[in-house]
C-alpha cells in the first residue's frame, strides 16, 4: 500500500493526490501540520525526508521525498498493462516530457513560492518571483496556443494528459494566490479547464470542480 505523507497546503502534495486519483492509484493519506505547526521539522520526519520536504511516498521501495519522484512512482503504477496502448502518465523516454517536468519545477520555485509567501507569510521577494513566473507562463501560453492549433489538448502530443501536465497544472491552477493573474494566458486557462474536466479529477482548496449539469427546474418568471 502506498502511504503519502502530505499537507493540504502544498501544491506538490496536491499533484500527488490528483495524479493518483486520475491514474486510479490508491493512496493512504497521513497529514502533517506544517502551519503553524512544524511536523515536517521533527527528527522523526527528517528520517523520511532529510530536507524536511513534502510530500513523501512510502511503500514504493525506499521512501521518496522529491515530489517528482513521487509522481513517477504513482504514474508508473497507473500505467498498468491494461493501459499499455495508451500514451501513459509517465513518458520518461520523451525529451519533451523531461523538459515539461523541468518547467514544473521552475513554476514551483517561482509561482509556488509566491503563493506560500502571500498566503502563509513565507519570506520571499514576491515581485521577483511574480516576474519569473510570468516569463515562464508566457512560454507555456505560446506552446499551448500552437498545440491547440495543431489539434493537441495537452502539453505533449498524444491522446491524453501525462504526469507533466499535472505537475505544471497544480502550480498554474493556484498561481493567482501568489498575485500572478492568468488573464494574459487564454490558452492556459482553457487547458486548466480541460484538466478540471478529466474523469477522476479532485479539487484542492483553491480549485473548483466543474458544476453538475443544470438541474431540470420550473422556469422562473421575473
Amino acid at each position: 500500500m502506498l502511504i503519502l505523507h502530505t499537507s493540504d497546503l502544498l501544491a506538490e502534495a496536491y499533484a500527488a493526490r490528483l495524479l493518483a486519483s486520475l491514474a486510479g492509484v490508491a493512496l493512504e493519506i497521513r497529514h502533517l501540520d506544517i502551519h503553524p505547526g512544524r511536523d515536517h521539522e521533527t527528527d522523526a520526519f527528517r528520517v523520511l525526508s532529510p530536507l524536511g520536504r513534502l510530500p513523501v511516498l512510502e511503500g514504493a521501495g525506499a521512501p521518496l521525498a522529491d515530489w517528482q519522484a513521487v509522481l513517477c512512482a504513482i504514474a508508473t503504477r497507473g500505467d498498468t498493462p491494461a493501459r499499455a496502448d495508451a500514451p501513459g502518465w509517465w513518458r520518461g523516454a520523451d525529451p519533451a516530457f523531461i523538459g515539461w517536468l523541468g518547467m514544473a519545477r521552475d513554476l514551483a520555485a517561482s509561482a509556488g513560492v509566491a503563493r506560500l509567501h502571500e498566503g502563509l507569510g513565507v519570506p520571499a521577494d514576491g515581485a521577483a518571483l511574480r516576474a519569473a513566473a510570468h516569463a515562464l507562463l508566457r512560454e507555456v501560453e505560446r506552446h499551448l496556443w500552437f498545440a491547440e492549433r495543431a489539434g493537441q489538448r495537452w502539453l505533449l502530443a498524444g491522446e491524453g494528459p501525462c504526469a507533466a501536465d499535472i505537475a505544471c497544472y497544480v502550480h498554474i491552477a493556484l498561481c493567482e494566490e501568489g498575485g500572478i493573474a492568468r488573464m494574459d494566458y487564454p490558452a492556459i486557462r482553457r487547458w486548466v479547464d480541460r484538466i478540471r474536466h478529466l474523469p477522476g479529477y479532485i479539487v484542492t482548496s483553491g480549485t473548483f470542480a466543474p458544476p453538475a449539469p443544470a438541474p431540470v427546474r420550473q422556469p422562473v418568471r421575473a
Partner: peptide, 16 residues
C-alpha cells in the same frame, strides 16, 4: 478583445 477560437464550449474567457 478575443479570437473566436478563444471561446471554447463551456469556457468563460477573461479580458479587460
Amino acid at each position: 478583445v478575443a479570437a473566436s477560437a478563444d471561446l471554447a464550449p463551456g469556457h468563460v474567457y477573461q479580458t479587460m
